[in-house]
Design a binder for these strands. Structure first.
Length: 817
DNA sequence: TCCTCCCGCCAAGCA
DNA sequence: TGCTTGGCGGGAGGA
């Protein structure tokens, strides 16, 4: 019977098209349908076709039968039958475009004013609309659902909606943008693109499967509907299918545009985000296809509203359909929008107005606990993945274990984002440092008051108002010098750095080389023990640094050893493994800091790394190192000889992770810190750290966090496995909060290195011309003040696109249809 | 061949 | 129980 029913729709079209000038319709009584005796005879088939047609057709037919002569009906039927059998009629049918949802939406919108008078409410009766537009009810729902998502209509009752027009649109868009930002869509987009890129280079990798399996169930799509006060959401089946509703999907889709720069979103990316990104398309193609279908539906309506426009994005991989935002520019709101949200847990709408931030938190990340910070659902999946990784690791502590690519990607992403935040927060003075570095003679001489710094290794000078103190460090193999940004308070730990450490002569790759390296790197990832604990945060509590129990973790030397396993040069170190392992945890790991390549920095004498470097000793000879902040500090190489510095060891210090992001921190396990090296006393960097954290909205104003997160001692918790329940993302130890991210594994550092290397940040010779950034990957995850800082450095210099992209730069062409 | 998306089945849930 | 609502995916037109 399916075939005849299919034809029924055709007959409907026939009737519709052949009777275009029909009278206005009134709702007729439903005709009694007579089952066809034999659907396969032409006559009975025709009867069945007519009876099976939409109510509109039925009513039209009935009306016609009532008003007109039966002969006319017969004639129509005859014509219909005739045409149904012929090809001619097929050609006279309206094309699909003429029946498109977009066109239908145009017709729908034409019925109502954009800005209806508030005093005069327009009501929408679905029956009327379906009749007047000669369309099935189902299609109207598609339109209305999308319009509802923008609060252009709202449901009043069965069959009845209120038309609001565009009055609420600016407010809605602003709200959506805010929610989108808090939902970290931009980061999700980054991750998806990164993963795509991974896949390009290694399509057959079993990592994909692993990646897929490591993700949990789809929770991403379970997002609540963002409401505005006064525009109440009264969907019929509110509790049942709301989560998958076209409304929510539509809102999410709009959010993607609002948070993206440029405001172009490909269907593929949007679909993945809507699915939740945890379902690899390979594994669930049907789901992906379904999402795409729905997105087309939504896009058609949004296009009719002139909010988006279809374009094509041409990348290396080909031409992809995408949409470009053409709606009003949504400016960052200067005041908190009062929103209401309906949580996904079917709780009643929040009655009282709350600030958008709170609202978003409640709406997007419904949680049961008291914690102020909640983990985004997408991160829960990642945490699961991380847990899986850790289980693998812990089950086989000595054998190489692959960390899932998802985990890896998340780590890289977090580090890079954090690092970019760090860079963006550099003071103007620090920016001047880079210029000073290229011309040492221009560096002012040290003041006597700063002389004590000389006693510190590496010439690290305490800077009273700077969080970091750069130290130039030449890298003999790459010929590129690096500035190490260290906490002055950490400097003393350098002297006790394990002699087992060595320079990691990793190839000095630019950013475009990351991917190819990644494939290898991922295959040689060695065991990483996950010990980092995480707890729920309590930002309002005291944040004073506290001495924590000593961590039972992999020693720094072990970590170094593992790093070295990936390298051919590491054989020697491997042989020394037993020695390394014999070292106790009192060995102090090289303090956290940033190693920034100074490609244009010249030194009178290039430092050389002799073959000793393989044994972990690097002679840095005949070079005076300076701390540009405080001036030239003569630093005889002899003083440095005792220091073993892993040239590529980039340990991001004071990584600033959003509370949601930090949920993934445990994978960055391996804290090789010990209590002896920890200084819990405030140091000059703490103020800067706190300023930054407050600045980007990670902690409330007035709240202080310890300055040396990596040096905080995080006790190994036997319950460290139980992290999924925790939606908090910072460490809570007896009421103390530290934003702690432990020292990342070497391959993470390597990624950061690549990223840093790609920056033109420290190249004063290059004019920092603003370049067209095809895809801005560094939108701030949160905090209204951070956005400008990321697009422009504090001294006004613009970051180049190369520096902005941490995904290898991809040519992106946008063509409009 | 792939993109686009119409179309309608059918289930959830409301009145 | 009938009706409304809307998720979902087959499959066809179009590029």
């Amino acid at each position: 019977l399916k075939s005849p029913l299919k034809q029924a729709s055709t007959s409907q079209l026939v009737l519709t098209e052949r009777q275009p000038d029909c009278q206005p319709l009134t709702t007729p009584p439903k005709p009694k349908e007579t089952p066809p005796a034999d659907p396969w005879t032409p006559t009975s088939n025709l009867k069945m076709l007519i009876s099976a047609a939409s109510p509109e057709i039925r009513s039209r037919e009935q009306r016609r039968q009532l008003s007109d002569s039966s002969s006319e009906v017969l004639q129509t039927k005859h014509c219909l039958q005739e045409h149904l059998l012929g090809d001619e009629y097929e050609k006279s049918q309206p094309s699909r475009k003429e029946k498109s949802l977009g066109l239908l939406c145009h017709k729908f919108l034409a019925r109502y004013p954009d800005y209806p008078s508030p005093s005069q409410k327009s009501y929408i009766c679905l029956d009327e609309v379906t009749e007047e537009l000669h369309v099935e009810r189902r299609r109207i729902y598609d339109i209305v659902n999308v319009l509802e998502s923008l609060h252009m209509v709202s449901r009043l009752a069965r069959n009845r909606y209120v038309w609001h027009g565009r009055h609420n649109l600016p407010q809605t868009l602003q709200a959506l943008k805010k929610v989108g930002e808090e939902n970290k869509y931009i980061q999700q987009i980054q991750m998806i693109k990164r993963r795509e890129y991974e896949h390009e280079f290694d399509p057959d990798s079993e990592r994909n499967e692993e990646m897929a399996s490591s993700f949990g169930s789809s929770e991403q799509s379970e997002m609540s509907f963002v409401e505005l006060p006064g525009v109440e959401f009264r969907a019929a089946s509110v509790n049942g299918r709301k989560y998958k509703s076209l409304r929510v999907m539509s809102q999410k889709f709009v959010m993607l545009f609002l948070v993206s720069t440029p405001q172009i979103v490909s269907l593929e990316v949007a679909a993945k985000i809507l699915i939740g990104e945890d379902q690899l398309e390979d594994l669930d193609k049907s789901k992906f296809k379904t999402k795409i279908r729905r997105l087309y539906d939504i896009a058609n309506v949004l296009s009719s509203l002139k909010l988006i426009k279809k374009v094509h994005v041409t990348e290396e991989r080909g031409r992809k359909p995408a949409f470009k935002w053409t709606g009003p520019e949504v400016l960052p709101n200067t005041q908190d929008i009062k929103l209401e949200a309906t949580s996904t847990t079917c709780s009643p709408p929040i009655s009282e107005s709350i600030t958008s931030k709170e609202q978003c938190s409640k709406a997007l990340f419904p949680s049961k606990g008291k914690q102020n910070f909640t983990r985004h659902s997408s991160l829960i999946k990642l945490v699961k993945s991380i847990e899986n990784d850790r289980r693998k690791i812990q089950s086989a502590p000595t054998s190489p274990v692959k960390i899932s690519a998802s985990t890896y990607l998340l780590i890289i992403f977090l580090l890079e984002t954090s690092f970019s935040l760090f860079l963006s927060q550099m003071t103007a003075e620090e920016m001047q440092v880079k210029c000073a570095l290229s011309s040492p003679e221009a560096v002012p001489k040290p003041e006597p008051s700063q002389q004590p710094a000389l006693s510190q290794p590496l010439g690290v000078c305490p800077a009273s108002h700077s969080s970091v103190s750069p130290v130039i460090l030449p890298h003999p193999q790459s010929g590129v010098s690096y500035a190490i940004y260290l906490h002055p308070s950490q400097a003393h730990t350098v002297t006790t750095y394990s002699p087992g450490f060595m320079l990691q002569p990793l190839p000095c790759a630019n950013v475009t080389g990351i991917k190819s390296n990644n494939s290898k790197i991922l295959n040689i990832i060695t065991t990483e023990e996950g010990d980092t604990q995480r707890g729920q945060d309590e930002p309002t509590k005291s944040l004073a640094a506290e001495e924590r129990p000593e961590m039972k973790s992999e020693t720094s030397s072990q970590r170094c050893l593992k790093r070295s396993q990936a390298l051919p040069e590491s054989n020697l170190i491997k042989r020394r493994k037993s020695d390394e392992e014999s070292l106790d945890t009192s060995l102090t790991f090289f303090p956290s800091g940033y190693l920034i390549p100074l490609t244009h920095c010249t030194h009178g004498n290039k430092a050389e790394c002799s073959t000793k470097e393989k044994a972990g000793v690097c002679s840095l000879q005949h070079t005076a190192y300076s701390s540009p902040i405080t001036g030239v500090i003569p630093m005889p190489a002899s003083e440095l000889k005792t220091v073993n510095i892993p040239a590529f060891h980039i340990t991001p210090l004071n990584i600033m992770l959003s509370p949601n992001s930090i949920a993934a921190a445990p994978v960055l396990s391996n804290s090789c810190l010990n209590s002896s090296s920890t200084s819990s006393a405030p140091n000059p960097s703490s103020s800067a750290l706190n300023f930054m954290l407050q600045h980007i909205g990670l902690i409330p104003a007035g709240v202080q966090v310890p300055a040396n997160p990596p040096l905080q001692h995080v006790p190994v918790s036997s319950q460290s496995e139980n992290i999924s329940h925790s939606s908090g993302s910072t460490n809570v130890q007896e009421g103390k909060v530290s934003y702690n991210i432990a020292t990342p594994p070497w391959w993470v550092e390597w990624e950061v290195h690549n990223f840093v290397f790609s920056l033109q940040f420290l190249q004063p010779k290059e004019p920092q011309e603003p370049q067209a950034v095809t895809e801005n990957f560094f939108r701030t995850p949160g905090g209204p003040n951070t956005e400008p800082a990321l697009s422009a450095n504090s001294d006004g210099t613009q970051r180049t696109s190369q520096g902005t992209l941490y995904i290898p730069q991809r040519k992106l062409e946008v063509s409009e249809d």
